[in-house]
Amino acid sequence: MERSAAGASYQRFPRVRIRELKDEYAKFELKDTDASMANALRRVMIAEVPTVAIDLVEIESNSSVLNDEFLAHRLGLIPLTSSGAMSMRFSRDCDACDGDGSCEHCSVEFHLAARATDSGQTLEVTSTKDLRSTDPKVCPVDQQREYQQALGNVDAYEPDAAGDHRGILIVKLRRGQELRLRAIARKGIGKDHAKWSPAATVTFMYEPDIRINQELMETLTLEEKQSWVESSPTKVFDIDPVTQQVTIVDAEAYTYDDEVIKKAEAMGKPGLVEINAKEDSFVFTVETTGAITAYELIMNAITVLRQKLDAVRLQDDDGDLLDLGAHLTGG
């Protein structure tokens, strides 16, 4: 590990503190590292954590109003439960099926058969009701949720347990119309197509460091304090009803908009507050599509990132990085 030629070590020991963790949502702090690291993590979560999504559709019969390509695209975008995706093979380098992408190591088969009977009612073809998987581990996420609910494993923190569970609408069929197809889901990453991205949103922000100059603040009247507090578009500050001191209620609500600083200057009190971004401390917000849990997403992202770094290191053995290291140290 120690590399004398590279000179100074940039190794740091980041710390993570989880603030909130639900199935599809996570909020955590990442400290003692650089923006490059935080951003790498974010980008890997969005584009390089593998999931399973429908990739090939063979239509046997389609008399709906949407044409085949349209339907295939819609099917592809349905999130499938992909907890096993990390251990699956990419079909392009699957030996078992010779890159054909149709064996159980690299693919899951789906079937859909729906026909609107003569009842005269429009039939809604949805991901929960009609899309049938051949592998119970890989199925549309809302089917999974229904199953969990049936088992009573409802996430107690899930606020929308009573929400809309009709699934994802694929197409509506009118009387006499029919849709029959076979679909193959494969492992992939968001970089190739957004349908494989497990992330709905991944964001991070620098943790703000807000320091109020209380001495200067006390020179303001209550009205002035009030108007200063209200100048922030988000609720960052408040006035203590007892002490009438300005306090920070939610530092992370600050959006680096500089409004309070401008306000202070306009009031003739520059330096009323000092706000800095802590450059080695990040607050992450992660939401997933449901294909994998937020926890899996973060952990898999770290795994993928590590694999990528390993790949760099392997290259390094070829000597490329030695030259680079020498170059960096000015050798």
């Binding site: 968001g190 957004a194 349908k195």
Partner: peptide, 13 residues
């Protein structure tokens, strides 16, 4: 944004 195209923005037949 590539993802928007992947998700159907401007998709035509």
């Amino acid at each position: 944004n590539k993802s928007s195209l992947d998700r159907g923005f401007g998709r035509c037949i």
